[in-house]
Amino acid sequence: MKFDTAYSLSLDDKLSIYDVRDLNFDETSPFDSDKDSFLCPNDECRAAFDPGNALSTFNAKNVNYQRTPHFKNKASTQHIDGCRYASTHKTATGEGDDQREENFPSEFVLTRRQYERNTPVVGTQVSVPLDPTKVPSTRTNSSHSTNDTTPDKTSVFAHPVECYVSNIDDKDTLKAMPLKIGEHTATYWAFFKKIEYLQDNKGLIYWGKIKAIKDYTSSFRIDFEKKVWLDKKPYSVNVYLSKKLIENYRKRKAFLEQIKAAVDSERALYCFFYGVTPELKQVPSKKNPEQTFGVFSANIENLDHLIIREAPGLQGH
């Protein structure tokens, strides 16, 4: 059985698997999921066992994942009777149920979640609270609920993107699931807009297949395959990632690893971003600087709100 939320022993809080991934790559955080213990998010169930009754993670540290990240029970994981996280069946490989993200957050929070470490991690051992079977302290968090179910809100962009990508063949679900970003509320289907239709509405999550990524050593430009038509003329679309933006990014190493691999990749890659809407600009021609040509372009303002990834299911959509 896979699930999205677990209790972190080192942080004394419940995290989604996307929170865990975010922390793993954050160079400003000492967090390492391999040095933490993740326990059942059900308070009553967790209190019935010692901290050794842990869960495992899938795709918690893989920069370029293709299958949905999640927590899952180990063969030794126990649950109390009636706990909804108890495994009800096992597949031959144990990974047969990780193809679709079923935990849809209803809100994407633009302010990044802050994590307060409860006990320090020393070496490779997690410092265990004095009473390891206690339920976590009740915390007031603007973006996460305190019960054992998957949080209704997330500040990690990968979560709503995974919901959309892994459910792309289930249009009815995407049209039924609500998503709020800022003051704007729509369905997942309406919030994710193909890059060639970016003129339809501003403030959406735009996505498209990548044609090429231009590596300028310390900055990058992502060119999209599809063009935008305006006044019966096709215009190229791109987004620019500045040197300053990348250098100041808290997940700089992971991002550079990912985008440099993408530059040389022969696989089909897609880019999703939020926060900016490419607009028509006139840029000078390289061959003749005195001449200009039109292109829809935007400077990315927040790398937390941009994702480059494989998404085989999007072929043909």
Rank of each mutant, 00 (worst) to 15 (best):
P30S: 12
F31I: 12
D19A: 10
E27L: 12
R46A: 12
F31A: 14
N42L: 02
D13R: 10
F49D: 10
R46F: 07
S33E: 15
P30K: 04
G52F: 10
S16P: 00
K35Y: 15
S33V: 03
L15A: 05
E27N: 07
P41Y: 02
C45H: 08
F49N: 01
K35W: 09
R46C: 12
F49C: 04
S16A: 05
D26H: 04
E44C: 00
A47R: 09
S29L: 04
F38D: 05
D36N: 10
L23P: 00
N53W: 07
S29Q: 13
L15S: 05
C45R: 04
P30V: 03
S37H: 05
A47I: 06
A54S: 15
G52L: 12
G52P: 01
R46S: 14
C40S: 10
C40V: 03
S33W: 09
C45I: 06
D34H: 08
F38T: 07
S16R: 01
P30G: 14
R21V: 07
F31L: 13
E44N: 11
A47H: 05
N53P: 03
E27K: 08
N53Q: 04
L23S: 00
L39R: 07
D26V: 07
F49H: 02
D26L: 06
C40T: 03
S33H: 14
D26W: 07
P30N: 15
F25P: 00
D50F: 13
S16L: 06
C45Y: 05
N24T: 03
F31H: 06
I17V: 15
Y18V: 05
F25Y: 11
D22K: 05
F25S: 11
G52N: 14
N53L: 03
N42H: 09
N24E: 15
K35R: 15
A47T: 13
D26T: 03
D50N: 15
G52T: 11
F31N: 11
S37C: 10
C45Q: 09
C45T: 06
E44D: 13
P41L: 01
I17K: 09
V20L: 08
D36W: 05
T28Q: 13
C45S: 06
C40M: 02
D43V: 04
N24I: 06
D22H: 12
K14M: 12
